[in-house]
Every structure is written in C-alpha cells, then in structure tokens.
Nucleic acid binder design. Sequence first.
DNA 1: ACAGTTAACGCTACAATGTTGCATTATGAA
DNA 2: TTCATAATGCAACATTGTAGCGTTAACTGT
Lengths: 151, 151
Amino acid sequence: MSTRPPSAADLIANHGGRVTRTRVAVVDALDASNHPLTHDEVAANLSEAEVPHDRVTLYRALDWLVDKGIAHRVAGSDRAWRYGIVREAPHQHAHFHCSGCGNVFCLEQVQPAFAIALPGGYQLDRAELILHGICPTCRQAEPTAPSPEPR
Amino acid sequence: MSTRPPSAADLIANHGGRVTRTRVAVVDALDASNHPLTHDEVAANLSEAEVPHDRVTLYRALDWLVDKGIAHRVAGSDRAWRYGIVREAPHQHAHFHCSGCGNVFCLEQVQPAFAIALPGGYQLDRAELILHGICPTCRQAEPTAPSPEPR
DNA sequence: ACAGTTAACGCTACAATGTTGCATTATGAA
DNA sequence: TTCATAATGCAACATTGTAGCGTTAACTGT
Ligand SMILES: [Mn+2]
Ligand SMILES: [Mn+2]
Ligand SMILES: [Zn+2]
Ligand SMILES: [Zn+2]
C-alpha cells in the first residue's frame, strides 16, 4: 500500500484551517496546473467549475495557503502574483518567464546555487533566479519564428 | 583633455527627442541617485526641485528614456518599477533588493554568468539574478537587528 | 443532534500603480 | 517668424490588491 496524496480538504484541515468551498477549489485548481496561476486565472478556473466565489475571499484564500506553506507565490513580469502548489519544500528553484504566453514555470531541477562576490556591506538573505525566454509550448506553436521585433 | 559626461539636454537631443523641462529634470534626478527610483520618488524629487510636472507626463518621460536606452527599468518587490540611468551598456548585472528600505541597488560588479542545464524545450533569452537582503545603509542603522518581522 | 464560538465569508470602499484619449502647447526646423 | 508635430496636461479608466465590517457557516463541545 502506497500513501496516497492528501486531499485538498485534508491539507487544509491539517494546517488548522476550516475547510471551505473556496479553499478546496483553489487547492484543486493550483494542484491541477503545471504552472503557478494568477488570482484572475484561479477565479476563471473556479467559474468554469461553477464554484461560486468572491474576489476578496479568493485573495484571502491564496494568502492563507501561502502563509501555511501549502502554496507559494512568485512575481510575474506583469506585476501580478502567481500562486503555485508547493510540491517539494523548501520552495527554492529558478523560475522561467515565457515572453510568449506570459506564464511562469517552476524549474525544480534548476537550483540557484552559485558563489557570489557581493560588494562590501550587503547582507545576503536569498537569491532569486529568473530566466526569460520561450516555453516549450509557445516554441512549438511558432518553431522558427524570426519575430523581427523592430526597435 | 578628458571628455566630459554629456549633459541631460545633450543626451536627450542626441536620441532625437525634444528637450523638455520634465525630461531634463528626470535625467538629472536619475543621474544623481545611486539607485533606481520609482515614479513616485522621481516625482518627489522634481517637486523638491520645484519643477512643475504632470504624473502622466512623468510616466511617459520615463518610458521614453527606457525606450531610448538612456534609462533602464527594474521591477521592485512592491510591484512598482524602478528607473535608473544606464551607466554602462549593456545593462546586465544582478540587482539587490533591500528588505529594510525597499530600495533596489544595481550591482554592476555581479554579472550573472552561469551555465544552466535547462529542461528540454525551453529557449533561454536572458537570465535575471535578484538578491534579497539588507543594504549597507540599513545594516549600519541597525547593526545586529533580528528584525522580527511578525507574520 | 444542537448550540455556541469565531474563523472565514461577502460586500463596499479604498489605495497604488499605471494606461488611454484627446485637446492644447511649445520645441525644433524651415 | 512661421509651421508641423512631438510632447504635454488633464480627465477618465484599468488592474491588482487591501481594509472595514456585518453576516454566515465550519468546527467544538455537549
Ligand atoms: Mn516555484
Ligand atoms: Mn540595474
Ligand atoms: Zn509560453
Ligand atoms: Zn536598505
């Protein structure tokens, strides 16, 4: 017998939270995605699943999940946070920002471990590595696109 | 005889732009700062120098400077862009985000050059290294502060 | 099964950071 | 000086998120 992954409800209850409609649906939505989602994307997801929800409640649910370490939050290039389920703690890896679709992908394989010669006086706490480029899906959509991008 | 650094007006004119009150003041403000400034900080700076200015015009001036490569733009942790004068092109170095003062510092010494084994299908365009911690100024202000930061 | 406590909700208002449209101004060129 | 138009200044709007506060419903204890 292998241990099954905990249900959304279990995850929430195990962290001392009340199991509510929105929280369960949010965890399910994040868990089903292969990349972190914006508040708006989660909302769309819930709407599609016909789960009634409130904008503010959704923000609070996401915040709570991050606070409990169930989800993590990563900044996008468009100043909207992305929320992703935490699949392996601690959450420390590079993130890939696709300039095609705008999605952010967690690269769990790429652990930013490098020695940095910091100028004097700076006290380093945490390093964040962000890679910009084209994700596999967008790349396949336009394989050899020159994308002239006139300056 | 050493070549003097170009005046703000020259910089602007050399890029084919009209030399206006706001643009000149913005370039001067950015140039005088040792770290990139937010729109709001630039505005405060202009107010202090008693340079009349409009919020939107200021945004457009900053955008124009970035577009021409005179300034560069870097994201803050508070979803406000920071604008800094370009002192050495190309602008490619690590950025330090101070959790004390919230300022962002350009670390021209720290060039993010590392070999990354990217998962298949991703096309890398640019790598961005963000360091989080305490800047020299904030550190001196509270030398051994634990900074409890209650969640 | 029921009642009580209070975490969490849902709504309204507000804040911060930008963007868009458009009439007006003033910069640089002729 | 005159002229074309780049750039401005103002009002309105968009997006992303927070704060206050009365109401609801999830859990606890019986
Ligand atoms: Mn991640
Ligand atoms: Mn910089
Ligand atoms: Zn993509
Ligand atoms: Zn600082």
